[in-house]
Each structure stands twice: as C-alpha cells, then as structure tokens.
Design a protein around this nucleic acid. Structure first.
Lengths: 226, 226
DNA sequence: GAAAAAAAAGAACGATCGCTCGTTTTTTTC
DNA sequence: GAAAAAAACGAGCGATCGTTCTTTTTTTTC
C-alpha cells in the first residue's frame, strides 16, 4: 500500500467529526439545520487547527478566529458555547474519529509481521492526511478542563498498546524476538509521532511518507525479527 | 556511567544560564548587583519553567509569575523587559548552555560505538536533570519573535547532526552498517526526545533513566551494528 | 411576496492582560 | 546613624480578552 492508494481509498474528512459532534449535541447548538452546522462547524474546526498550528490555541483570540472564518463573533457562539469547549470538542471528537479509523486498519490481518507493517504504515499515512489534527492533539493539551484532562494520555497509551499487542502476538507465534514489549511499543510510537511533530524537517529533505514508513519499519524489524 | 554518577559529576544549574544572561545584558538590566540578579533571575527562570509546564507559557500571566516568585510586578520588570523577551531569553541562553554541555560529553571519545553510546546516554541523563528546560524548548516555540524563530529548529538539527556524524564516522571505520544516516539520526533524536516529552509515562512505569538508555542504545545498535 | 423562523451581525460589558511609574522600603556608604 | 543609592512595591493605564445581547439580514413557509 502506497500513500497515494491510501489517500484515495480512505476518504476521511472533518465533516465526519462534525456530524458526530452535531448528533451528540443537538440540544446545545443554537443552529437548527444540520447542513448549516456541518458547513460552518467544519470551517471553524479547520480554521482553529490552522491558527493553532501558526500561533497556538491560547494565543488565538476568538476575533482572530472570527476574521479567518468569516463568521461574526455572534455567529461563532451559535456553534460553540465557549473557547474552552471548542478546545475540548476538538480533542474529544477528533480523537474518537481517528481511533475508529486506526482500529479499522489492521482489522482482519493475522500475520504479525504484516500486521505491524500495516499498522505503522497506516498510522504514518493517516497522520499525514490529518496532520493538523495529530499535531493539535499533542501540542494543545494544557488547558483542557478536568473532564478531558486524561484524554491525551489515554490516546497515547492506546496507540502504544496497539503496537504492544501486535508484538506480543508475534512473540506468541514465534515470529518476533523476545524484546521488551512495553519499551518497544513506546519506541515505535515515538518514531511514528516524529513524522507529524517534525513535518518541517522531513518536508525540507523531500522525504515522502512512503520513504519514512519504509525506513521506520525496516528499523524496527531489525530489532524484533528473529 | 550510571545516572547517579552523571548527576554528581555534572553540576549543571540554572545559575550558569543566569550568569551568562547577566554578562551579556548588563546594560539592559536595571538591577546593579550581580548576586541579586543571579538570585532573582534564577527564581524567575525556574518559576517560569514550572508554570509553563503546568499551564503553558501563554496562559501564564505575569501576575501568576509575580505571585509564584514572590516578586512584585515592578520587581519583575527590573529583570526582564517584556514577557516576549522572557520567552526569548529562556530559549536563547538555555539552549546555549545545553549545547555547550552536550558537546563536552563526547569530547575525546574516538571509538564510534562507545561514542554513540555515550552521546545517547548523556543526552538522556542531561534531559532528565534539566527536564523542564528540554520540555520548554519543544513546547513553547510558537510565540518567539522573528529574531529567534529559527532557534528551535537549529537546535533540533544540531542534536540530530551530532548523531549523524557519529554514525558516519562509524561507517567510515567499518564499524557501522550502511544505513541511511539522515533518517537514522532523526530516529535516534526522536527516541531520545520521547524520554522528556513523555516523562509521565515512564515515571508511571518505574522506568529509570538507565533502563531507558540501555534499551534505546540496544534498539539502535541492532539496526546499525554490522 | 408577506409573515415567521433561522442565522448572522457587531457593539458593548466586565475581567484580565502586559506594562508603567511615582512611592516606599531596604541596603549601602561614609 | 543619617544621607544616598538600590531594589521592591503595587495601584493604575490602555488594550484586548471571552462572552453576551439586541438588532439586522437571510432563509423558509404558506
């Protein structure tokens, strides 16, 4: 699977996140028509991610957001109830959508080596498509309310555990060496994460998602293959 | 070298950073006595790092900083000229001090495998001692002025290049395999960085700096050793 | 196409921000 | 220990923040 194949097959969009958000918050949102919510909420989410990447969520004022989205201050507050809530919902519904996608990716694959390859490759490709989301999840965790404070940690551990489980399965089947699964899982996560945290570095060097995935997978297999 | 040995041998402190800052900014600082500057500037720096880790530099108000340091608003402005400048100086003088320390660590070592081992181990140990600094360097880069915008990138590339060079030396001497040095260097950097970016994860699991260093070095050597 | 409903608009509010500056307190000097 | 220098203080400034609310505009309904 190449990145181009991945991109055309997986049609993942912000609107999925919006639809999810809308269906669970019909009561709280002042706007009645679903298609209006989806349209403007998508703009709000995308613009928030963009501005957060540029100046950080905290430094972004709602007037900045208003100017960039083309929506008035009043209009913004028809869709969100507060700035804190905007931060929280991006984390909550974004992570949820991505988790669903990640889990679907290795579904049905049993051969451990193939499974690990697919998972790593898919993760890198997905984070390439949704780079702003992944970056946001890591960088904008400080001002989450008590209710959502643990969300970033949970998602970090979830991704890591998916790696760990694949390795354990491989070890049970006698395909992978007897390495420390916890630290190996953490290492794989760190290497996958570097792709979207340091995108500027890899862009500058002209390294494609495919090349990065190939390298990382080779790197890891040297360590865990018998 | 264990972490405990490292800790006792390397007496690195904030005051070094302060002294460096003071000697280059005597003109701008309103306080005359050096020992007063060192004392209070150390408090300001440490407190800023602490509050930034807790709530983010942007969300930290100077009144927060005033309350936590015990210095009045007016007193703060006797040491710094603006909040932006505080951010910039922490990056500038912090990075400078750490760079100096990092370079000294592999000084004199010629055997490639030993050199790589020492560099990785030292980096992990140093980031353990100065965890708040390393974390700050990575997380608080958004609102750096034009003059210092490239600083974080430069330091990222510098660390990476130190890895890359060691690997190239090893390849030239026929000790290391013919791997891609750029991506391997990037990978090592990512793995070292994970230690201080996800300290909570490793703390929770009771993984010591020594254990982490051992694992990472073993992990990498599997990939690059002939 | 007029009445009703929905959505967008943007001025205004209190709170808080970074920052200043006249005053007070502390330390040094002789 | 009084005078001078250094340092700390903290109320107050204008700007900007998140948020609200009344008004205007747009869309839908019949």
């Amino acid at each position: 699977m190449t990145f181009d194949e991945f991109r055309t097959n997986r049609s993942i969009s912000v609107e999925d996140v919006c639809r999810n958000y809308y269906s669970e918050n019909k009561g709280k949102i002042k706007i009645k028509k679903e298609h209006v919510v989806i349209k403007n909420m998508s703009i709000i989410m995308n613009t928030t991610l963009k501005l957060s990447m540029r100046m950080g969520f905290d430094a972004m004022s709602l007037r900045d957001l208003s100017a960039e989205t083309g929506l008035s201050m009043g209009a913004l507050y028809s869709y969100i109830s507060s700035k804190d809530e905007l931060l929280a919902l991006l984390h909550r519904y974004g992570q949820k959508t991505i988790k669903k996608n990640l889990e679907a990716m290795v579904d049905g694959i049993t051969e451990p080596r193939k499974k690990l390859d697919t998972f790593i490759r898919s993760h890198i490709f997905l984070s390439e498509l949704l780079r702003e989301w992944f970056y946001f999840f890591f960088m904008e965790t400080k001002n989450l309310g008590k209710k959502n404070r643990l969300l970033p940690m949970e998602s970090e551990l979830m991704t890591e555990q998916m790696c760990t489980h694949i390795i354990e399965e491989g070890q049970a089947k006698g395909v992978f060496a007897d390495v420390r699964t916890d630290l190996t899982g953490a290492g794989i996560k760190a290497l996958m994460q570097d792709w979207y945290l340091k995108r500027w570095k890899y862009s500058r060097r002209g390294i494609t998602p495919d090349a990065y995935a190939d390298f990382i997978i080779g790197f890891i297999e040297k360590s865990i293959l018998l």
